[in-house]
Amino acid sequence: MGSTKIPRKAAVGLAILGVFFLMALVGPLVAPYDPSAFVDIPLQPPSRAHLLGTTGQGQDVWSQTIAGARASLLVGFVAGLAMTTIGATVGAIAGTFGGLVDDVLSLLTNVSLVIPGLPLAVVLAAYLPAGTRALLVVLVATGWAWNARVIRAQVLSLRNKDFVAAAIVTGESRLHIVFREILPNMTSVLASCFISATVYAIGAQVGLEFLGLGDMSVVTWGTNLYWASNDAALLTGAWWTLVPTGLSVALVGTALVLVSFSLDEITNPRLRAVSDWTRALAARGIRPGASTPVVRDHG
């Protein structure tokens, strides 16, 4: 495997993400029906007229899945971006400044980490007016702290590096150091923080809407599952109202995680070296054991 090639995991992940992005972007233009409209007899299994069947409200599942992609991905990525921005700012300032600033910010981070997210999100969502903006506030409020923690730890390990020391010696301001010297040097960490935040945001959004919090009249992956469950999808055996949405959530989540894995392998080549090593040994019929293998092929 050459080092310039995109790792296979990243390729698979990016391909899946590409399909869903396309679906979110142009999908509503090509969707066969209005996702909210009553278009046919309720609870019909997949057929030629309705590729993924119809819901208990007589809506087209395929059109709903497409519309849900747009709403859920948008919220997921915006919330992920916001969480990463806040987490990176808090974490980087805590790590760079140290002392009292670090103590206060770390305490704040740890307090938000130990307070369970979903029950807090429920209370927040219940009191805020239903809508996308409230949803974003809830997601970011319950999810920023993990990134702050990860980024603070990374900054602490970067702080001793030469280029940061040089910036401190030349008398650059602390904030300049945070935003110009440190954060640009940890793009891969920021990227994987963004990915995990996005995965969290998509999952939490689906969960909250499944509970019935948020605007139930909007078509998202979460409301699709809420209505499916409300219409007793299991009792009536209407699996097609559950499977497309659940599968979409899982595919997007998996794709994001695969990209994140590849980032890890790129920044930490040792991880990949061991896989190559195992493959190189397997090619010679050697199963790695507890001891350093002996491979004689140069005579």
């Binding site: 689906v206 969960g207 599952l225 469950s229 999808a233 959530v249 899982a250 595919l251 997007v252 989540g253």
Partner: peptide
């Protein structure tokens, strides 16, 4: 992949 499904979806 399994972990990417919502918990309640796997439950259903």
């Amino acid at each position: 992949f399994l972990g990417a499904f919502p918990y309640f979806w796997l439950a259903m």
